[in-house]
């Protein structure tokens, strides 16, 4: 009887162990929307975006004069939902390309206020790949266009990231008004 009980205990321990191992595997592989991943897991979004809001459709327009759901938590000033100014190298925008339509082109309207003779450089990366850079040296609005190469890789979460890196004069930044992704 004792032997039987011992064997039963070992079987129960093995079943429980397998159950926990499967639990660990599930914990490492969440099956969630990009919005959930960005807000809860990676903590990169300022607010929760309902599924669908981050979706990329050709021609999707972001107006930075109103809160932009796609904006990363850091890298934007002022640090609230209406932040329009790019800061340092962490300013990111996220799009969900669940429908597998790869963005081809990005248009943006921006400006900066600088003292005469100073320049500010803006580099743009799409999914960590460099797609172009531009120098700002005056306060007038500029409309810019960058081509996104078709060969870009997309991560397993169908995420498309646009990253802006600003280098140059300290204490100033580039202000965005509009961005269109085709």
């Amino acid at each position: 009887m004792k032997r039987f009980e011992k064997h039963l205990s070992i079987i129960a321990i093995l079943i429980l162990g397998s159950f926990y191992l499967y639990g660990f595997w599930l914990s490492a592989h969440p099956n969630v929307s990009l919005a959930y991943r960005l807000y809860f897991i990676e903590q990169k979004l300022l607010r929760w975006s309902k599924p669908g809001i981050l979706d990329f459709n050709p021609g999707v327009t972001l107006d930075f004069r109103v809160p932009v759901a796609n904006r990363s938590l850091v890298g934007w000033e002022p640090p609230n939902s209406t932040g329009t100014r790019l800061q340092g190298a962490n300013s990111e925008l996220y799009f969900d390309i669940q429908k597998h339509i790869q963005p081809k082109r990005v248009e943006l309207k921006g400006r900066t206020i600088l003292e005469a003779g100073r320049t500010l450089r803006l580099r743009i990366l799409a999914n960590e790949a460099f797609i172009g850079e531009v120098e700002f040296n005056g306060p007038e609005w500029r409309e810019l266009e960058f081509v996104i190469p078709a060969s870009l890789t997309t991560d397993a979460n169908s995420r498309f990231t646009l990253r802006f890196e600003v280098t140059g004069a300290i204490g100033t930044s580039i202000e965005l008004e509009k961005l269109i992704l085709y």
Binding site: A12, I13, F19, L26, N31, I41
Partner: peptide
Amino acid sequence: VLALALVPLGLFGYLFYLNHHVGDALA
């Protein structure tokens, strides 16, 4: 040893529920 193995059962039960309900066991 079986008692030790039973300790995390409640926690993992909830993990499984969250995985089913939210899609994220660590929600």
